[in-house]
Amino acid sequence: MDRDLFEFALRMGDNALILGQQVSAWCGHAPALEEDIALANTALDLIGQAKLWLDLAGEIEGAGRDADALAFLRDARAFRNALLVEQSNGDYGQTLMRQFLFDAWHFPTLKSLAASGEPRIAAIAVKAAKEAEYHFERSRDLVIGLGDGSEESHVRMQRALDLLYPFQGELTAPDSVDEALRARDVAPDLAAVKLETDRLTLETLAEATLRPPPAPVRKGGKTGLHSEGLGRILSDMQFLQRAYPGASW
């Protein structure tokens, strides 16, 4: 098996899956109908992308696991999502800030991956990039609107940024998998992605009158070392298949 490629597909798929699962919890609870619809649609896009990535991971692995098996029958240590996406929803501002910090990485990453030398990755990336651009446009607008909004919204957005900003760096911190795939022309140079992610993030935050905190990068999820939150997410997401193995409709 192509271990590096498998790991990479899992990372892309797990990021989309866990964020999609978290965002979907807002369905029926968002502060306005339009926001409810927007969050549900964002979650839907992410879960659709997760299916594409995880089906590819299963194909690379060649052990007969499909996206469903990978999503519902793995334990926390086998997940490869970054810590950012498993941070709790918090209030609406915290959910939006998490989305924005993710989108500012996701969109440039997918744009670069569209030129991947691995055609199956390029195909998913071209498709998903259109959706990610739309997500970025929305989360950027809302971060600016709420950051440079009322006193209360500003305080809440700054609090969310202080909490979540340290987790963004994991997405652009290369490890041996990233290096190996860059050398094979499968994945982009993360230094270039980081430049673009930082530019999109910092320009937006400046316009939103928000200040990123000086903080070390917090990481671990890419290699399977997760925070407590992931276990809770999985206990909810995987409940049905754990309680009734093989259930379908």
Binding site: A38, N41, L44, Y134, E137
Partner: peptide
């Protein structure tokens, strides 16, 4: 092309170009 900053959208009922976006998402993706 992706993105929504596009040309004005004509109202499908009266054809007017004086329309505005209420929400980036609707009843289907």
């Amino acid at each position: 092309c992706a993105g929504t900053a596009a040309a004005p959208v004509a109202c499908p009922r009266c054809g007017s170009l004086r329309t505005e976006r209420v929400s980036q998402f609707g009843s289907t993706p």
